[in-house]
Design a binder for these strands. Sequence first.
DNA 1: TTCTTAAACAAGAATTATTCTCATATAAGA
DNA 2: TCTTATATGAGAATAATTCTTGTTTAAGAA
Lengths: 139, 139
Amino acid sequence: MSLSELKETLTAKGLKITPQRLALLEALENNQHPTADNIIGYIRQNHPNIAIGTVYKTLETFVEKGIIKKVKTEKDVMRYDAITDNHHHLYCSESDRIEDYFDEELNQLLTSYFAQKQIPGFQIEDVKLQILGKFKNEN
Amino acid sequence: MSLSELKETLTAKGLKITPQRLALLEALENNQHPTADNIIGYIRQNHPNIAIGTVYKTLETFVEKGIIKKVKTEKDVMRYDAITDNHHHLYCSESDRIEDYFDEELNQLLTSYFAQKQIPGFQIEDVKLQILGKFKNEN
DNA sequence: TTCTTAAACAAGAATTATTCTCATATAAGA
DNA sequence: TCTTATATGAGAATAATTCTTGTTTAAGAA
């Protein structure tokens, strides 16, 4: 995203434009499913004084505004996902690697399945797959 | 589960039978997707001296042995699931409630879908749905 | 049954991720 | 340029989890 697009992302959500928030957005674009710590390390390369609290606070703000999402994991470190389109996640069973998985055919299959089959006492808002397995290539 | 079944669960995995481990198993049977803290509170009703570290250590052991599983969440408290059969999870979008969802038809649909459609560079081991939404009834 | 020993436990200290506090700085509209 | 609500930096505080150490105990051997 260009600088002006990053700024537009913020103003569209009613957020002030600050260097820290722009750095966060840029970091989120360039790191896949990062932890807060990943982001801090990345940002401090160019912006050494950013405070840890600011990063956490800003991530929280972005989640509230729907700019990013939290990723569910079995670890006690939170991870974030800058992509908010409907997609699924591939979880490595041997490491902490997580990749996005886009599959429109699957989305439609799920949509039609749950359109026809209700879950008693539950109103579905979103369905996501956690696909556990092994990546064949290193990365 | 009867006491002898609980004991068999442990010996089958090569674990020594201890009162603490039996209490853990019983707590896990009677609490849905509990946190470590939930379990400690439950066990201390009858077993006031169990140490927090023992609960964490034992949960870790049970996960390693496949007796229970960790449940992925967006919170920084771990939750556990005593049911290791293939099933999915319903996550409440407004609270921390999580329920199990069993659907054999869905499992077969997913199995046949991924039998036919490979994910490039990825070997699937397990597929689980995270179903986000609202519970209609309180509980 | 008693003995032996590796494994498990209790208690509390240590660690780590995250949140909070508050004084200062700054974005954005007037 | 001024004003003010909001954001930030720095570091303290918190909460979940892990680690350490001395003691106890389960389970097989004698």
